[in-house]
Amino acid sequence: MIRVADLAWLEFEKPDLDRAEVFARDFGFAIAARTPHELWLRGTFAGSPCMVIRRGRASRFLGPAFRAAERADVDRLAAAVGHTVRDIDVTGGGRSVALFDPSGLPVRVVHCAEPLPALPEQPPLPLNTGTRPRRTNATQRPPREPSRIQRLGHVVLETRTFARTLDWYLDTLGMIVSDFLFLDGQRGRGPTMAFIRCDQGSLPVDHHTLALHLGPGTGYVHSAYQVTDLDAIAAGGEYLAERGYQRSWGIGRHIQGSQLFDYWRDPDRFMLEHFADGDLFSCDLEPGWAPMSASGLAQWGPPVTRDFLGTNPSPAKLREVMTALRDDNELDPARLLGLMKAMSS
Rank of each mutant, 00 (worst) to 15 (best):
L297Q: 10
D284H: 12
V304W: 06
S282L: 08
V304S: 05
G278S: 13
A276H: 08
G296P: 10
G278R: 11
G278E: 12
A298D: 06
S295M: 09
M292P: 00
P303W: 08
P291A: 07
E286N: 05
L280R: 15
L280S: 11
A298G: 02
G296M: 03
W300Y: 13
G288Y: 04
C283N: 10
G296Q: 02
P303D: 06
W300N: 04
G296N: 09
S293K: 01
W289N: 06
D277Y: 13
D279C: 09
V304G: 01
S295I: 10
P287N: 06
E286P: 03
A290I: 00
S282P: 07
D279Q: 15
E286D: 13
C283A: 15
C283E: 11
E286Y: 11
W300C: 00
S295L: 12
A294C: 06
A294Q: 14
H274K: 03
G278W: 08
W289I: 00
V304R: 14
A294L: 06
A290G: 05
G288E: 10
W300M: 02
A290Q: 14
L297T: 05
W289H: 13
E286V: 05
G296T: 01
P302W: 08
G288Q: 12
G288K: 15
G288A: 09
F275K: 05
P302C: 07
A294T: 07
D284Q: 10
W289A: 02
G301F: 03
A290W: 07
P302A: 04
S293A: 13
S293V: 00
L297I: 11
M292R: 12
H274G: 00
E286K: 07
L297W: 06
W300V: 00
L280Q: 15
W300S: 03
S282G: 09
A276P: 02
D277E: 15
P287Y: 11
A276I: 01
W300F: 13
L280D: 11
P291N: 04
G301M: 04
W289Y: 13
G296I: 00
G296D: 04
E286C: 03
C283S: 14
P287I: 01
P303A: 04
G301A: 02
F281G: 00
F275R: 08
W289K: 09
A298M: 13
E286A: 13
P287F: 11
Q299C: 02
H274I: 01
P302K: 12
A298V: 04
D284W: 13
A276W: 06
